[in-house]
């Protein structure tokens, strides 16, 4: 990340911001998609985050922290998109998978399906912690700083989220009633 570009963009240089946006957009979008699990919502969140970055850039005190700061604004945008989605369309359900169930739970396809279901049950708060920690590989204190919550809260959310995902995987590993009866 070029701090000169950040400084120029802070002063209102649109070309400098365009260069920053081009460099950052894919990584921001990748994180948004992993948090929201929906292409359109992720695009909207990324768009809103990039505009917020432009709008608030003059208030970034340390240009060297541009990357971490941009993720903070992205997660905020994901909260907004996720809450709008959840508040107004809470009855959305995932349809049962057409993939064949496998009793040993080792199928990657089944794992993905179960993880997707388990992940969608998590709140945006929990998803953000999982993605920042396990996708971006950030330490928990950095996640806490980015999200603006205490480190203990991040640990608690990560524990809760991983417990839920593990339960989703284990649920798949258990044989169905019909299989057990055979």
């Amino acid at each position: 990340m070029d701090t000169d570009l950040v400084i120029r963009a802070q002063r209102g240089d649109e070309e400098a911001f365009a260069s920053l946006a081009v460099a950052a957009s894919d990584r921001l979008h990748a994180v948004a998609h992993r948090i929201l699990r929906d292409i359109e919502l992720a695009e909207d969140a990324t768009q809103q985050a990039l505009l917020a970055i432009w709008r608030d850039l003059p208030q970034l005190r340390d240009p060297a922290r541009f990357d971490a700061w941009s993720y903070r604004l992205l997660v905020r945008a994901c909260y907004a998109e996720g809450r709008r989605e959840r508040r107004w369309t809470p009855n959305m359900r995932l349809l049962p998978s057409d993939e064949p169930m496998q009793a040993d739970g080792s199928s990657a396809v089944v794992d993905r399906d179960q993880l997707e279901r388990g992940f969608r049950r998590l709140s945006i708060d929990h998803r953000a912690v999982v993605v920042l920690h396990h996708y971006l590989d950030w330490p928990l204190d950095q996640v806490a700083e980015t999200l603006g919550v205490p480190a203990g809260t991040v640990r608690s959310r990560l524990h809760h989220a991983m417990r839920g995902l593990r339960a989703a995987l284990d649920a798949d590993a258990r044989p169905t009633e019909r299989e057990a009866a055979q």
Partner: peptide, 23 residues
């Protein structure tokens, strides 16, 4: 391990139209 592997999957590129709309 499974979660990390699963998170590696999925889209990364933001469509040009979205970036253009921002600019």
């Amino acid at each position: 391990r499974i979660v990390r592997s699963w998170l590696e999957e999925g889209v990364t590129a933001l469509p040009d139209r979205v970036l253009d709309a921002v600019l």
